Simulated assay, not measured.
Amino acid sequence: MVINNKKIKLLLILILSIVGVYIGFEYILPLFIPFILAYLIAAAILPVVRFLYRRIRMPKIFGGIISLGILGTGFGWILCYLVDLLLKQLTVLLRNLPIYLSVLGSFMDRFSEGCDKFFGIQLGTVQSFIYSNFDGLLVIVKNKIIPVITTRSINLLIGIVGFAGIILIVLVSVLLLVKDEDQYSESFKNSFFYQEIHIVTGKLSEMGIAYLKTQAIMLGLIGAVCTVGLLLIHNKYALLIGIAIGIFDAFPILGSGLILVPWGIIEIINKDLYSGAILLTVYLCCQLIRQFLEPKLLGSRIGIKPVYTLMSMYAGVNLFGFAGFILGPIGLVIVTTIVKECKERLVITKEM
């Protein structure tokens, strides 16, 4: 009877933990994201702030301003460099757009002719059908797509203004946390639920470090596989493109397939079967690495079986979208930590 009561209690704790994590991630977390981000930034710059305070007795708020300035300058330089690179690439694309349109037109003509021959119909039938429907496509773009783009642009502008306000809140919060970090730390340690919260946050910290290490390993492996594949097809920019695909593959909604698969298909259409086969094989290797190695690495580092980590990623993406790729494993760690701690306490209580 005691055992059954224990099982019922653990089951209730498990259900309440899952429901609590879902409600927290869905409704509460969005309200505190700026302050969580501020806490992470403050934790990152605190060593510098403390060093300046110990060495030259610089007030912590000034040390925080200097640290934020250095961090913001570095981030801004990287962002400006990437934007400049993107604009240069876009300029080259627009300059060569007539050439690309000409190549696309020739490809469509060959494609139409191939369809005519394949279906045994009169030459020019598919081409006439495509061109006759092109005007209708332009009308759809003008009447439906362009107004939507205009509306989205206005919403984007409003979002940018709101984002600037959030950034301001984050910066002010960082300075306040740095300025009174001793008081906040002491207040947190004296709180009633400090031990329970500390156990969960400690586990999450371990998981965060493990996640970053795992992604670094995945980036290196996938970048290396892509680079080798591009070297096999004698690409002049194998290393650069390989690293770029490795970074792109880290995004679960995007992935390397958006680059490698169309590229491979285009090479096959252009009758370069060797290059097409290499690119598609590289994509397959990337998928195998991502699907099988990542859960194993992440699961072994956080003490959770790989299949459970994969299940949590899948459930997280379905529940929370793109952010669920990270929130899923985090939720799994929170639930397992709570259940494990409660289980140990129930055992101790029983023994007493």
Score class of each variant (00 low, 15 high):
residue 130 I to N: 07
residue 120 G to A: 06
residue 68 L to F: 04
residue 89 Q to Y: 10
residue 40 L to E: 06
residue 44 A to D: 06
residue 48 V to A: 09
residue 38 A to Y: 02
residue 60 K to G: 13
residue 68 L to R: 01
residue 67 S to K: 05
residue 52 L to F: 12
residue 126 V to K: 01
residue 89 Q to D: 14
residue 113 E to P: 00
residue 127 Q to E: 15
residue 107 F to P: 00
residue 56 I to F: 12
residue 31 L to Q: 06
residue 36 I to P: 05
residue 102 S to T: 13
residue 117 K to M: 13
residue 132 S to W: 07
residue 58 M to Q: 09
residue 135 D to S: 10
residue 95 R to E: 14
residue 94 L to D: 03
residue 37 L to C: 00
residue 135 D to Y: 15
residue 103 V to K: 11
residue 70 I to L: 10
residue 38 A to M: 01
residue 60 K to D: 09
residue 50 R to V: 07
residue 83 V to I: 14
residue 79 L to N: 07
residue 29 L to M: 05
residue 113 E to T: 11
residue 32 F to D: 00
residue 43 A to E: 09
residue 54 R to W: 08
residue 61 I to T: 09
residue 39 Y to L: 15
residue 83 V to F: 14
residue 84 D to R: 01
residue 131 Y to A: 02
residue 121 I to T: 13
residue 81 Y to R: 05
residue 63 G to Y: 05
residue 120 G to D: 10
residue 123 L to S: 14
residue 69 G to R: 06
residue 44 A to G: 03
residue 41 I to R: 01
residue 77 W to R: 00
residue 123 L to C: 00
residue 132 S to R: 14
residue 68 L to I: 06
residue 133 N to K: 14
residue 29 L to A: 03
residue 121 I to C: 11
residue 72 G to W: 04
residue 94 L to R: 11
residue 72 G to Q: 07
residue 57 R to D: 03
residue 135 D to A: 13
residue 116 D to A: 08
residue 65 I to D: 00
residue 113 E to H: 12
residue 130 I to S: 08
residue 118 F to S: 14
residue 67 S to P: 05
residue 79 L to S: 11
residue 134 F to E: 11
residue 41 I to E: 01
residue 60 K to E: 15
residue 77 W to E: 01
residue 78 I to N: 02
residue 115 C to S: 11
residue 37 L to V: 05
residue 79 L to I: 12
residue 37 L to F: 02
residue 74 G to C: 11
residue 86 L to G: 07
residue 38 A to F: 02
residue 128 S to T: 12
residue 39 Y to P: 00
residue 50 R to S: 10
residue 37 L to K: 11
residue 90 L to S: 14
residue 97 L to S: 13
residue 97 L to C: 09
residue 51 F to C: 05
residue 64 G to C: 09
residue 34 P to I: 13
residue 57 R to M: 02
residue 81 Y to N: 04
residue 102 S to C: 02
residue 37 L to N: 10
residue 112 S to Y: 01
residue 50 R to H: 03
residue 89 Q to A: 15
residue 65 I to V: 15
residue 90 L to G: 08
residue 89 Q to G: 15
residue 49 V to R: 02
residue 133 N to A: 12
residue 107 F to K: 06
residue 46 L to D: 14
residue 39 Y to M: 12
residue 86 L to D: 08
residue 66 I to Y: 00
residue 78 I to L: 11
residue 57 R to Y: 11
residue 120 G to V: 08
residue 93 L to W: 15
residue 90 L to H: 09
residue 106 S to H: 12
residue 88 K to L: 08
residue 113 E to R: 07
residue 40 L to A: 09
residue 70 I to F: 06
residue 75 F to K: 00
residue 91 T to V: 03
residue 87 L to D: 08
residue 109 D to F: 10
residue 88 K to Q: 08
residue 106 S to F: 13
residue 118 F to D: 09
residue 114 G to D: 05
residue 33 I to E: 07
residue 129 F to W: 15
residue 130 I to D: 03
residue 52 L to A: 12
residue 59 P to K: 06
residue 38 A to N: 04
residue 92 V to N: 09
residue 135 D to E: 08
residue 86 L to Q: 13
residue 65 I to W: 03
residue 29 L to S: 00
residue 119 F to P: 05
residue 61 I to C: 01
residue 79 L to M: 14
residue 76 G to A: 08
residue 75 F to I: 10
residue 75 F to A: 07
residue 71 L to I: 14
residue 106 S to N: 14
residue 38 A to Q: 03
residue 115 C to W: 04
residue 133 N to S: 13
residue 77 W to F: 11
